[in-house]
Nucleic acid binder design. Structure first.
Lengths: 249, 249
DNA sequence: GCTAATCATTGAGTTAAGTCAATTACTCAG
DNA sequence: CTGAGTAATTGACTTAACTCAATGATTAGC
């Protein structure tokens, strides 16, 4: 608990206190309108939902919510990037996911019982999120059951992704976990190579993959020296994914 | 691929060929009626769904479906036990979940796109499952959107569970992963002790926790010699969960 | 109830990955 | 632009976990 305090006191600003700026401008809205959870809503319903939401600005490393806090809102990322993590009893910080602009998170709370956040959420850099009341979205779905289809489809996708994440973590050695992770980041599948940007700082990718930063660094250095990846800060270029897969056995 | 063949040829019987026995008896139905996905269905809708389903008997180690197979059905376990696993390119078998009677699995396929199984499913012992056409359930939801609520709630729970599973796997050392796993199996929370039955053979629990069977065995022997657990075949008695949590740091 | 097969345990030796420590490279605020 | 603070890398060393191998224990099928 003492360590947990330490980890939290690094965030100077209060948690979940909205900058009460109305969401009246258009930037960021386009992505919201095309998100699976919202694109089928009738314009007036979407407007109403937005009216009940608040835009929130988060500074670098600012905490949005804490694990086990009652969950009254879920979130849509307008800009920036966030990460989801948990702290265990000894204060170890374990990254579970990173969220990019255009994505929703904690949306599972709309139907969770009890509605408590399952992890911490913090901004990785200065970010903006839309803070949507769970109650408002639920009421919308209760009034218009036909909207549920989109939500179900979204939830199904989410479950498949999590299942896939779990699979990577059952890979026993660190090198192969990292390779699998990189392959999954590739936009165009495994056929052709491509450039990949790490969605997290390297030390947090390491945490996400259950290894030490030093191990991450050494494995990447090794892949680099074998010509399997080219590294430029957080951008990696993978020329031959097939070869990468072959060596991961 | 050759190794994958080897792994598969151990299953003598064909995959997904229903024993065409109508589901006309009552045993197993009670659990189905009380499952979150079905308990709110009107009796005639549930009956219709059952009419379109088939009861399937699976022998020990019998394969139900393969990873990447088109998914036309999802399943409810009437009796026995199954496991979900994946095979990677080198033929390594990685267990991701075990399913008990009263549970559904592959239900996420109702809304998946494309509808392909994300893993293999096999019976751990002789089992019976109800094989429910995805199409039938979807049509039911399309006709009666009010049913979607239950599905959403179920999917939300599923997502939270997977998230939690993922968290365990980011624990870096094998001992602490095993301890976390055992704690989560405890029925009455961490306050009081209790007996826990491993839902999988030990070698598959090891696979689920990304460690070797030998490592699993050694860790358990160590916990046993420190009086933290008493082991009786697949049943473990944990007298003091708090102490177990304390040493896992 | 017996036998074969699988599962579980234990030991010995090896390797992968963690730890600690020092250095270098970034990043961001002023 | 500059310096403080954080992140990344690298080296040396240690330890946890894997591998291989042999032996018991259980289980499934006859």
């Amino acid at each position: 608990m003492a360590l947990m305090q330490t980890a939290e006191t690094r965030y100077s600003k209060p948690v979940l206190v909205a900058v009460n700026k109305p969401f009246d401008d258009e930037d960021g809205l386009q992505a919201l309108r095309s998100h699976a959870l919202f694109r089928n809503l009738r314009p007036r319903d979407l407007e109403s939902l937005i009216q009940q939401s608040r835009r929130l600005r988060l500074g670098h490393h600012q905490l949005l919510y804490r694990q086990d806090m009652p969950a009254h809102h879920f979130f849509f990322v307008i800009s920036g990037r966030l990460r989801l993590y948990r702290l265990d009893s000894s204060g170890i910080d374990r990254t579970l996911d990173s969220i990019a602009p255009g994505d929703c998170f904690a949306e599972v709370m709309i139907y969770a019982d009890p509605p408590r956040y399952a992890c911490y959420a913090e901004a990785l850099k200065s970010s903006e999120v839309l803070m949507i009341p769970v109650k408002a979205y639920r009421e919308l779905l209760d009034q218009h059951p036909e909207y549920a289809q989109a939500a179900l489809s979204h939830y199904a996708k989410r479950a498949v992704t999590r299942f896939h994440d779990l699979e990577i973590m059952t890979v026993q050695n660190a090198r192969d976990r990292l390779i699998r992770y990189l392959i999954d980041l590739l936009p165009n599948g495994t056929e052709q190579g491509g450039e990949v940007e790490l969605p997290l700082p390297k030390c947090l990718v390491a945490s996400r993959l259950a290894m030490q930063p030093e191990t991450f660094s050494r494995i990447l250095a090794d892949l680099k020296s074998n010509g399997l990846v080219r590294v430029n800060r957080s951008k990696l270029f993978i020329s031959d994914p097939q070869r990468l897969i072959e060596i991961s056995q």
